[in-house]
Design a protein around this nucleic acid. Structure first.
Lengths: 252, 252
DNA sequence: AAGCGTATTCGACATTGTCGAACGCAACTC
DNA sequence: GAGTTGCGTTCGACAATGTCGAATACGCTT
């Protein structure tokens, strides 16, 4: 692990959480001398990864990170497959559809198909949700015991709403059920008033590479039986296109 | 400039251009020993900035970059203003609307309003276009002589189509006209069959912070007079909301 | 089974980043 | 308007750190 690179990424991470920060704030949060942080910041700035507000001198993320993000999406085979099947799933379920991948303890949304009712909706590509509080995250974690252990070892689970599962054992119990059905649900655990239903996506090597699912108003729970089937089918179809031999894969 | 951080970002940049690369390819392109690149790569990997394909061992960008990109968009005041006015501009012009910012020699799209005809269109947020070959880029460069000098000093302009302006003097001449009208046009200079029209956006300090414009099929050139006015108005409205005292600002 | 082309590990060396201190600058305060 | 405080930034000596060549391990082909 190269120290300065690690520090640079940690700077980006802090900036990600706090939007705009002064050099001294940044240094305080990282527990590093300001001059050290300054050197790294200037390097990041030269590449457009961060930029400094002319008026306040505070630092924030720069346009170069956006460029990188877009290229990541283009390289993902999963995404191109998800686009096709999301459309169908949205039509069949009448709900917005999200596809996501796992990074450490969070789900990153890589595709978002708006509800097919024609209303204006914010694109959600790139947003992150704690894995333990989302249907997508649970669908993936159920088949990734190592990632789950790592997540639980890291510290207490963050509570998002009163419904968030923050007990490790309770989460494990839920995930056992998820693995049995290849279907994960979430009711107001991340956002009040919102529920989710998701299924895991596997690739040719039989490992979970993502999950696809629907988002619906909590009051519309439970969805029709056909909807459960539609989510599982979307996940299975994408998995097959990625070369997965079976769906679902048996965990462990 | 911290060497290892600089190298890390260069690695990300190469990965951005080439999608997936083996360690030796990557090392060869950067003219660095493989072991040096490997150390940096492993650090980036630990943070999810890059990931390694299990089968081929090749490296590619990871989900963490996508997360960063999304947060960058959220911090941009310009973007939230652009969303409102893009909608109006799309309605008035009947065209797709793009808003972009400048990084070095490229325009990064930070908002994309699809053509209001209801057809399915790929979201274009995050894509990059060489500044000299786009209406958005010209609109900004006309008011940023320093950036223009830097761009021209860096080397020959990249040709995208037969229409791309690759002569520095010719570009300067065009930009003088752009600065006079506060309106930049582009006809098939980046993509054959596509034309653009854009106007610069200024902030409270009177500097260019972005540009907004429309994309239309080259065969539909020239747009109606009202459309020219609509583009300028959108740029002026956003500039005013950002605190700009005047629009356009006089260059130099 | 042998050989090649990979990625990866290791360790010695000196290059390089680090950190404290000093500087410059602007915005307040009295 | 002089003094003061709180910034960001620059500088340079030191040694911690990243670098690179060589050695190892791995997987694929022949």
């Amino acid at each position: 692990m190269i120290q300065s690179v690690d520090r640079a990424i940690r700077i980006l991470g802090v900036l990600q959480g706090a939007r705009r920060l002064s050099l001294s704030d940044l240094a305080a949060r990282l527990e590093l001398p300001p001059s050290t942080v300054h050197g790294i910041l200037k390097t990041l700035q030269a590449h457009g990864m961060v930029l400094q507000d002319r008026d306040s001198n505070r630092y924030q993320l720069g346009p170069a990170v956006l460029k990188l993000g877009n290229v990541y999406l283009d390289t993902l085979e999963l995404r191109s497959r998800a686009v096709t099947w999301s459309e169908e799933l949205a039509r069949r379920s009448g709900c917005a559809v999200r596809t996501g991948v796992l990074t450490h303890d969070e789900v990153v949304i890589i595709h978002h198909e708006p509800r097919p009712d024609g209303s204006r909706q914010m694109p959600e590509v790139g947003i992150v949700i704690p894995a333990h509080a989302s249907a997508l995250g649970k669908a993936m974690l159920a088949y990734l015991p190592d990632q789950l252990d790592e997540l639980l070892a890291k510290g207490p689970l963050r509570s998002m709403t009163s419904e968030t599962v923050i007990d490790g054992d309770e989460l494990r119990k839920q995930l056992d059920e998820v693995a049995r059905d290849a279907l994960a649900a979430e009711r107001e655990e991340a956002v009040l008033g919102e529920a989710g239903l998701a299924a895991p996506i596997f690739d040719a090597s039989g490992l979970v590479v993502g999950a696809i699912g629907i988002v619906l108003p909590a009051v519309d729970w439970a969805p029709a039986d056909a909807t459960f089937g539609a989510v599982r089918e979307a996940a299975r179809n994408i998995s097959r296109e990625l070369g997965a031999a079976h769906w679902p894969i048996q965990p462990r």
